[in-house]
Design a binder for these strands. Structure first.
Lengths: 229, 229
DNA sequence: TGCCCCAGAATATGATCAAATTAATCCCTG
DNA sequence: CAGGGATTAATTTGATCATATTCTGGGGCA
């Protein structure tokens, strides 16, 4: 019997020293996911070797991985940059998340233990803290962690991978949008979601997360339409 | 205005010489997609350098890319192999394709030009030829090409990427399943699909492709349940 | 404006080091 | 004395780096 480790980012052996290419990958992934790199910004191999002190081979591998995931974009002429998102792209992302997220939330509700729910609520509390503090970066991280945890609870590794991958695509643009309007007016439906999960109301949980997704993503779409960076 | 090249596998400049890592990537991708590598088979860097004559850096990058796409699996101990598919995994793939494929077919129907439809029918004819010839490999390639073309016609690069990526996950197992029962009894709903697309019946096209997907994928699931390799 | 050259960046190689699997050996027990 | 398990040696494979080569893009010059 083989233990299937679907998720690449899962530590195979927690105590083991991580290879450099894995470390670079995670760093760079975080930079994209939380919008530290702006859309359009170039990502160069040499820049990363200088910045991280690593050799170019690990850096190359990290960039290839992110590019394959859609987090970075290959520009044809050997250049790589953070992709711009058009309104059409956001529409696709909305469609995809509108299907994936509720489905995963539904499964998560059926499977989550009370401890799992407690943990989710902790993550949501951290999110609220970040909002009241006006900590944008903290908000983005907490929000991602909350949803990521929900994906993992669904026990559907392939679908979870798909949903997770979408975050990399709108991360940079989300940061731009949120940066424009501060952290105060960032409503979510997490409380409704948690209530439904506690009540084992899987359908209700799916509905709550669907509204959460639409609410958040529509803001991104509208924001991209108007000023057009 | 930046031209967004969403798909990595698209030639940026057709005349240009492709870099080695891109060549290796495509070769290896084909091997996975069409089941030339069996589930569980190890994919080693050195093996590929010997086999292709390329250096290890391009090989490494190709493997990382495929791993990020879920075509290969990282085994924790720095080893990489072709993943085994469990019945649960297939269930996830069925769910995902059951949503993605009809949606893309619907959009493709709305957008396809008559020439596009002609081209699709050519691809389908090649598929039939492969079946009557008993050419398994040819069948798998033609079938993929048909569906891939359908994805591209939908003009939804992100969703198309997602759907395309799923093929890499069930490619090896599909080959095993089809290999067991020959090419004769491989029914599909492509004729119904084409008829609906010609009639601009988007809903009908979506229905046809949905049945096609279910029919094909259910065979894989059942086949995985019974003999358990 | 168009061409040519150059700086800089990416691609690709082979060497070197480290880790892991495999093979072989040895010791201990029955 | 034979078999089994485990430790260790050998080999294979992965990870990283330094370096050479190729290509792209831009600036200078006609």
């Amino acid at each position: 019997m083989t233990k299937v480790a679907q998720n690449l980012t899962a530590d195979p052996a927690p105590g083991r020293r991580l290879p450099a290419h894995e470390v670079i990958y995670r760093q760079l992934r975080g930079l994209v996911l939380f919008g530290d790199l702006a859309p359009g910004q170039a990502v160069t191999i040499q820049g990363l070797t200088d910045q991280t002190g690593a050799g170019m081979t690990p850096v190359r591998e990290a960039i290839r991985r992110l590019t394959a995931e859609g987090a970075l974009e290959f520009q044809g002429n050997r250049r790589v940059c953070v992709p711009f998102l058009t309104a059409d792209h956001v529409s696709e992302l909305i469609l995809a998340r509108q299907w994936l997220d509720p489905h995963l939330a539904l499964r998560a509700t059926e499977r989550a233990s009370p401890e799992d729910l407690d943990h989710l609520e902790e993550l949501d509390a951290a999110l609220d803290t970040a909002i009241t503090r006006g900590d944008l970066r903290g908000y983005l991280e907490s929000n991602y962690r909350f949803h990521k945890r929900l994906y993992d609870l669904a026990a559907a590794p392939i679908l979870a991978d798909m949903a997770d991958g979408l975050w990399l695509r709108f991360g940079p643009s989300l940061r731009v949008v949120c940066g424009r309007m501060g952290t105060q007016n960032l409503p979510d439906k997490h409380k409704e979601l948690m209530a439904a999960m506690r009540a084992r109301d899987a359908e209700g949980a799916a509905r709550a997360i669907r509204e959460d997704v639409i609410q958040g993503m529509e803001q991104v779409r509208q924001s991209l339409d108007d000023p057009e960076v």
